[in-house]
Amino acid sequence: MEKLLHWSIANSQGDKEAIAKAGQPDPKLLQQLFGGGMADDPTLMKESMTIVLSPEVELDNKMIAMDNFEMLIENLDNANNIENLKLWDPLLEVLSFEEAELRATALSIIGTAVQNNPTSQDNFLKHEGGLEKIIHLINDSTQPIEVKIKALYALSNLLRNHADMAKKFEEMKGLDIIAPILTDKSSNTKLKMRTISLLTAFLSCQDITEQIISTLRADGAVCAAIHCLNTESDLNILDRVLHFLSQLISSGLKFNESEIKDLTSGFKKIEPLEDRLNEDDFLAVKYVL
């Protein structure tokens, strides 16, 4: 199997020297594994994960295997097969790998597998510690920004339209990650956009009750969103913030005196951009001032 692994990598790269060094694999083994030379998708998925987990394979080759795995699970049936093939636990194991590139790609795979896919969302939830690992990566100040962006992408797709996932996320104090990112001057635009998308995903699967609004306020999400109106100039961020606030307003949110003060200040800054922002959300928020 190890010889086949090296031969497969060498052939995928077209490295003649490496191909010669690896030698030809046993034809009977190829026949057994690939059924006549063409491996089916489940076999390719398992083979890719074997490469990623092997301590003898170099990072570049592991990244090729991860990219191949992600392309495969863009197919809905293959995404759901992650559970059947018992590959969720190995994939979650990659989140603890030393190489940031592997962690980021594993998060991207998770986000892609569960996107608009209730079956894979349900399957992921069965694996204890998975959600906790992703939240931890976002809270870890030593993580590169690309890992955090991919973690937010994964979380948004895990939570969207999935009430049980959102409940577990809230129980794990996941909402605590929102305010620090939105108020941190070092957070780039993409990171903030992913964070606001996470907020929207969280709200997508439940009624926005007084309790939910109180939780969002207590966790600083409401103040952090208003803060963005005072500090951001990116139209995409402003639009997403206005939509978030509009959702809360339509669900009965009453701003307190401090929030109204900051909201008024923020509106003065974004008024020149009114014709470039979503009209309904802009007017909904402006109405409460």
Rank of each mutant, 00 (worst) to 15 (best):
E171L: 12
T195N: 13
A166E: 12
I181Q: 11
I177W: 01
K192W: 01
N157E: 00
E171K: 10
A166L: 01
G174E: 03
S187R: 07
L191T: 02
I178N: 09
G174L: 06
M193D: 14
R160Q: 12
I196Y: 00
L198D: 05
I177M: 13
E171M: 08
L159H: 02
L175F: 01
K185T: 14
K192L: 02
R160D: 12
S186Y: 04
L155V: 08
D176W: 02
H162R: 01
K168N: 06
M165Y: 09
K192A: 05
S156W: 00
R160V: 09
T195F: 05
S156D: 02
S197Q: 15
S187W: 06
L155K: 11
D176C: 05
R194F: 03
K173M: 06
S197T: 13
L159C: 04
D176A: 12
M165A: 15
N161F: 11
A163I: 01
H162W: 02
H162M: 01
I196K: 01
D184Q: 11
K173N: 13
L155H: 07
K190R: 05
K192H: 02
G174R: 08
M193F: 06
I181G: 10
T183H: 08
D184W: 10
F169E: 02
L198A: 05
F169K: 09
L182W: 03
K185R: 14
T195Q: 11
K167E: 14
K185C: 08
F169G: 09
S186N: 10
E170K: 14
T189K: 13
G174M: 02
M165S: 15
P180N: 10
